[in-house]
Design a protein around this nucleic acid. Sequence first.
DNA 1: TGTACATCAGTGAACGCGCGTTCACTGATGTAC
DNA 2: TGTACATCAGTGAACGCGCGTTCACTGATGTAC
Lengths: 219, 219
Amino acid sequence: MADGGSTPRERYRQQIRAEVKECAREQIATAGASGLSLNAIAKRMGMSGPALYRYFAGRDELITELVRDAYRSLADAFVAAGEEAGPAGLAEVLRRWALEDPHRYFLVYGTPVPGYEAPEDVTVIAGEMMTVLLGACAAAALPAAAGPDFHAFEADLAAHHAWAGAHPDTPPAALRLALALWTRLHGVLSLELAGHFTGMGLDPALMYAAEVEALTAGE
Amino acid sequence: MADGGSTPRERYRQQIRAEVKECAREQIATAGASGLSLNAIAKRMGMSGPALYRYFAGRDELITELVRDAYRSLADAFVAAGEEAGPAGLAEVLRRWALEDPHRYFLVYGTPVPGYEAPEDVTVIAGEMMTVLLGACAAAALPAAAGPDFHAFEADLAAHHAWAGAHPDTPPAALRLALALWTRLHGVLSLELAGHFTGMGLDPALMYAAEVEALTAGE
DNA sequence: TGTACATCAGTGAACGCGCGTTCACTGATGTAC
DNA sequence: TGTACATCAGTGAACGCGCGTTCACTGATGTAC
């Protein structure tokens, strides 16, 4: 009992928690992650400030929860798509996830807050996502020419290999492909979402597609 | 007269302004850009809060100034290196500039603040940087194979061509190369500076070098 | 060189604000017999 | 079914804080004759 969701009271608790987080997300979209205020959230929900302390230990826990949720939703999207989606399919998943809620994207990949340390478990969640991507890249079985030549640090790749929990027989080319996808797509996405393409007369979607194509040509 | 820097008083003004900005940068490094406080800066400088209003109209102007300085220093670094540095050389300039002061990097390329709008002139400064990069890419005269194939949006490239103030005869391959460098290098850099490589057993410097090599092989 | 005036740096007090968080308390909801 | 008790949601007052910003004012620095 009390493990979650069973009793009516517990379900109510979860409902309010979700509502608080929803308000928090709206507030982040308006004032940025650093402008998040418990009192303001409470006011918008029609409650008084201290009431929220029934649901969150404090402001930091709320933010941590939002960050965790963001990682979680990205990993879930990847897992739902599955390795069958292939590298190009997962690239599309990433893009949709990012555009669906840019602030959520920045919660994960944006400017780190100096004082704040993300909880350890988000790295595990990030690993889930990476595992799917690696699997898709391994299954794609692309020619060795795809992706940049990382011969200079095969040792590094082996270490990363272990980190990502990849099958021991994942070919190095798959690791290279996965990494190149990850960094290049974030290059386009982060610049796009931060508005650095505006006024340049470029369509970021096409730019993104070109990067995907450059790495997955031949599929 | 009064155009700047000539009279002793004016020089003193500029000196204090510089000192304030230096303190502001330290504070950003400690508490993040959103935690920047005029009063805290004044205290650290041994002055009282309102004194800073002699030098800055308010908090927003200070931040705007810091953002402008960040763009300026990057553009200056590119111009100083010059087109002769080549794409690989400029990539090295970018990386050094980013690692020299990560918070400055995020001031330019980090999570945008919802309310805050960067002044128009920073886009001009960003253009200076892009012009140098474009020139270097054009001079490199690489085979058409370099960089992703952007055939899908040659029209976009032409528009960007105009935006960047490139010579009308800049080959499309140079534009593609410059754009690919820009986005890919930022992909690696932003992930690195945000700490997303930590624990992965990868050396970001090698990763970065591999991306540069992939785009400039043959130089 | 000296006097009269204008300019400007910096101070200290004050205003109003919203923040995170604590505390003692009221009412309602659930549980046990 | 009803009563007695425990649990928990939510309130309102309060604390202490630092923030941006304004205002009237003091002293020092520069300028004009």
